[in-house]
């Protein structure tokens, strides 16, 4: 105790042993490192963000007597102009994103084996999937915007029997008030946009992980936990997409 009270010891900056989870001998309660714990809790809070968005959209949609049929709205396909393929593109997008998620899981497993080449290979495939998904989304957005859809204007409106009819582009100038429920565009662009932002961030994170893997940073560090953490985020993006897919495209 005496030396603690010594003024010099107190005021000087003392060189200290490095703190870590195992200091003192107590194990972490969940056998999960602090970095992964943080990522998990961040994802938990992000789940609340997305639920906030989705339930706002849900409440608004429930308060409407009529809503456009997604099978009609989302029927465009790249390179197949004028051919109607209901839910075609979005099914491809879903497949791409889920496969990309699988590739990243494979990268994580290879990381556990310290297989640098394996990690890099699967991560590369995962990034390709992410970029392909973003490309599809960009096409879909521009397709919808080309048709005259905006966040506050909906060209899809109810026909006499409740079917979904598209307002011709030429008619749009003559109808200043949105013929269909305007919140269709608002919530679609808002929520898929926010999800797309997450995908973009995830792609950037995976690219960083890929570069560091190729540099051998993780190999020298002795573990690929960073790939695992970024992977958690990437799967979360996939998880959100599953729900966006359900509420915007299927129901």
């Amino acid at each position: 105790m005496a030396e603690l009270l010594d003024e010099n010891v107190i005021s000087e900056h003392i060189t200290l042993p490095a703190p870590n989870n195992n200091e003192g001998g107590e194990d972490t309660p969940f056998k999960v490192s602090y970095g992964k714990t943080m990522m998990w809790f961040f994802l938990l809070s992000d789940a609340f963000t997305f639920t906030g968005f989705l339930i706002a959209y849900g409440a608004i949609r429930m308060s409407k007597t009529w809503w456009p049929d997604p099978n009609v709205v989302f029927a465009g396909m790249p390179f197949l102009h004028g051919v109607n393929v209901p839910l075609g593109l979005v099914s491809i997008m879903t497949t791409i994103l889920i496969l990309s998620s699988v590739f990243v899981v494979r990268a994580v497993i290879e990381g556990h084996r310290m297989n640098q080449k394996g990690v890099a290979f699967w991560l590369f495939l995962g990034i390709l999937g992410g970029v392909a998904f973003l490309g599809c989304q960009a096409w879909e957005w521009s397709h919808l915007i080309h048709d005259g859809m905006t966040p506050f204007y909906n060209v899809y409106h109810a026909g006499p029997e409740g079917e979904t009819i598209k307002l011709a582009l030429a008619e749009k100038a003559k109808t200043p008030v949105s013929p269909g429920p305007p919140m269709f565009g608002g919530s679609f662009f808002g929520i898929t946009g926010f999800h797309g932002l997450h995908v973009s961030i995830g792609v950037v994170m995976n690219i960083v992980a890929l570069i560091k893997t190729l540099n051998g940073t993780y190999q020298r560090r002795g573990h690929y936990e960073m790939v695992e953490k970024f992977g958690l985020y990437w799967h979360f993006v996939d998880l959100v997409w599953v729900f966006v897919f359900l509420f915007f495209y299927l129901i």
Partner: peptide
């Protein structure tokens, strides 16, 4: 698993 990352950091 738990030591390294925190420790280094």
């Amino acid at each position: 698993m738990v030591t390294s990352s925190t420790g280094e950091h």
